[in-house]
Design a protein around this nucleic acid. Structure first.
Ligand code: FES
Ligand code: FES
Lengths: 145, 145
DNA sequence: CACATACCGGACAAATTTGTCCGGTAATAA
DNA sequence: TTATTACCGGACAAATTTGTCCGGTATGTG
């Protein structure tokens, strides 16, 4: 579905968001990688991408780390994260790999596939990191097994 | 969504299916690759996989090629093709990459993601190669642009 | 300032996916 | 039988994704 990079990115954001929202606490790379069960250095790369795209805030130095501002918690959606890391492929690409998904020259799956892809888009567009962090806080969702 | 291998496999099957159903005609690798716009040698690998799994029939020698029997046209579903090439990942994996998708320890997206994944499963389970080939025959679907 | 902390950035390496090549094998026909 | 056709199978190569390493840079503390 999503790339590993994207999966790590989303899980990391949710964890950072939960710590920011619930404890106003910055978290370091080591923490993050441990809490979401991901390779530390690789996760760092992904987070750097997100920082550059301003979906995430980082602070250097002692007591530094990653955090999500209240605004980021409220406004950053999964869609933005997926777009930032994986690009638009999964969100608008053809199910059978035609170079363009279009009703002009649709693949045989097009009209059956479209509603499902639309629902996925809607889902990603709707959920913010803050909402997902809330689920983790309430024990309704987990970031590792 | 699916791997390139899987995309080529599905498109190839639909094309072969259309030729088998509409003209009772076997098609060769060269034809297939041209008609679905895919790399010939790589497509060959994918088709070999499908032949081994008996989702496709091949005949060697002059006037040989690939074909789908009436039974294959009627019974082979997209789901079988995806499983044969990409495995069960997309059909039952966790959206955020947790090693197991399970309600026991679900990720924060689980309950939102599940209905969408279920619809995808249903779609793949429902459609046979024969039905999709029909769409191409009627000009309602295309395999390249 | 000196020092410790922790993110940043680039180079590098491993693994996987995608794609190519070529000789082998089976089938058909002259 | 010989030649030709076309799929089969393994080895190989390129490209992409995933993952590691290490020095640089910014920041806070004494
Ligand atoms: S053209 Fe294939 S999904 Fe739209
Ligand atoms: S646990 Fe993530 S989708 Fe089910």
């Amino acid at each position: 579905m999503f790339s590993k990079a994207c999966e790590y990115g989303i899980r990391a954001l949710i964890y950072i968001g939960q710590q920011s929202a619930d404890f106003g606490r910055r978290v370091g790379l080591r923490d993050i990688a441990a809490e979401i069960d991901s390779p530390e250095a690789f996760t760092a790369k992904v987070l750097q991408q997100l920082v550059r795209q301003q979906l995430l805030t980082s602070v250097k130095g002692p007591a530094g780390g990653f955090e999500l501002t209240p605004e980021q918690l409220r406004t950053v959606t999964l869609r933005q994260v997926v777009l930032a890391i994986d690009g638009p492929g999964m969100l608008q690409g053809c199910a059978l790999g035609l170079p363009q998904c279009s009703a002009k020259q649709p693949c045989p799956m097009h009209y059956q596939f479209l509603p499902i892809r639309d629902q996925l888009n809607e889902l990603l567009r709707t959920y913010t990191i803050g909402e997902l962090a809330g689920k983790v806080h309430e024990g309704l969702g987990f970031l590792k097994q």
